[in-house]
Simulated scan of single mutants.
Amino acid sequence: MSVRIVSTGSFLGSNVVDNKKLFSKIHNFDKERALETLKKKGNDVQNLADDELFDLWVKQVCGVSQRVFFSEDQIEDKKGPTQLTEYMGYMAAKDALSYKNIDPKTIQHVIFCSYTPIQLMPNPACLCAHYLGIENASAFHMNTACSSFLDGMGIAYMMIKSGEYDRILVISADTMSINIDFNDITTAILFGDGACAAVLERNTEKKGIYSYYSTTNYNNEMLNMDYGKPIRMSGGPLVQRNAVNAMSHSLEKACEKAKISPDQIDYLIPHQANLRIVHRLADKLNIPYERTLQSVAYTGNVSGASIGIGLDHALKGKIETLKIPKGSLLGLTTVGGGYTYSGMVCKV
């Protein structure tokens, strides 16, 4: 008996915030330092307006061109939750269920992954299960920061493998736009809002999830977030090195458990922290960029949901530069505050 990902879904709001639009919210842009950085990289910065300079600098620093911010005025489905994070998760779950015509009543368990839920009790998984029409299912909320969605799928995988469950819905959503300090430019340029979902089920075929690996390495200094306060990140270059090493380690361990080598992976699906990290990871694993997910350019870092949004878009042909054919072997890997890091090998 194996477990497969039978359907995926995602949700992004309508308020697309490109770098020039974001510039109006930033209060401490160091223009001189940006000019120096861009000139060193050979960019022509003459006659650029401040917002154009900011746009070019952000693209160079983290590879993000735009992100989406979600707000209450964008809530269109009045039959769903009214809380921002929970609503996005609900919409992504609706997308996953409808894509393969899955009856909500066949879902036996719901996992909602987030570190920015608006409501703590009832937990977001219970809330979404109610609005989705999922009956008599168990449900819980979990948080491993940006690793949450992959860890949620890993837990669902193990629950189904135990023989106790046949079909589980995993949802991941985060509203970062209300948890950003726009005076902290290191985080303000990175994050966006969004949600993803996946339905996992028992499978008699060979294809499916081959392995899952997860571990932690405690560090509260470089990346942290307290209740009611914005996310904080310090030591950027070291955080990036740690992220690359952690994701490389996780995928290598997942491959080891699957009894394959990383070079057998058809497509690399990493957490979309920033484009530099994605490229450095691909280089370290010797996987070409054209076989690597790079959706961070248009979504920003959507925390736990970033890997699921990108995967959903790639599987459905929404990314022109990355279309994943059926039967492909994927290497998923992620890292989050904690540090938490995880890897998974699966066929789709």
Rank of each mutant, 00 (worst) to 15 (best):
R4V: 04
V17D: 00
K20S: 00
K21W: 04
S24N: 14
S24L: 14
K25S: 12
K40D: 08
K40Y: 12
N47T: 11
D51Y: 07
D51Q: 14
L56C: 04
C62F: 05
Q74Y: 07
I75Y: 08
I75V: 14
K78N: 05
P81F: 09
Q83D: 02
T85H: 12
M91G: 13
D95T: 12
S98R: 15
N101W: 10
N101K: 15
Q108M: 02
V110Q: 01
F112A: 14
Y115A: 08
P117T: 14
P117F: 11
I118W: 02
A125Y: 07
C146D: 03
C146N: 00
F149I: 09
D151G: 11
M153Y: 13
G154M: 10
M159T: 11
K161Q: 10
K161L: 11
G163F: 11
L169R: 07
S172H: 10
D174A: 14
T175R: 15
N179C: 13
D181F: 14
N183Q: 10
N183C: 10
I185K: 06
T187Q: 07
A188G: 12
F191H: 06
A195Q: 05
C196N: 13
A197P: 02
N203C: 15
S214E: 09
E221P: 02
L223K: 10
D226S: 15
Y227N: 13
I231N: 07
Q240R: 06
N242M: 08
M247K: 00
H249W: 12
K253A: 08
A254W: 02
K257P: 03
I260Q: 12
P262K: 13
I269W: 05
I269M: 09
P270T: 13
H271W: 07
Q272L: 11
Q272A: 11
L275T: 01
I277F: 09
V278E: 05
H279W: 01
L285P: 03
E290D: 15
E290C: 13
T292F: 04
L293A: 06
V296F: 01
T299E: 00
G300W: 04
G304Q: 11
G308C: 12
L311G: 12
K316C: 09
K318C: 00
K323Q: 15
I324A: 08
S328M: 12
S328P: 08
T334F: 10
Y339I: 04
Y339S: 04
Y341I: 00
Y341F: 14
V345M: 12
V345H: 03
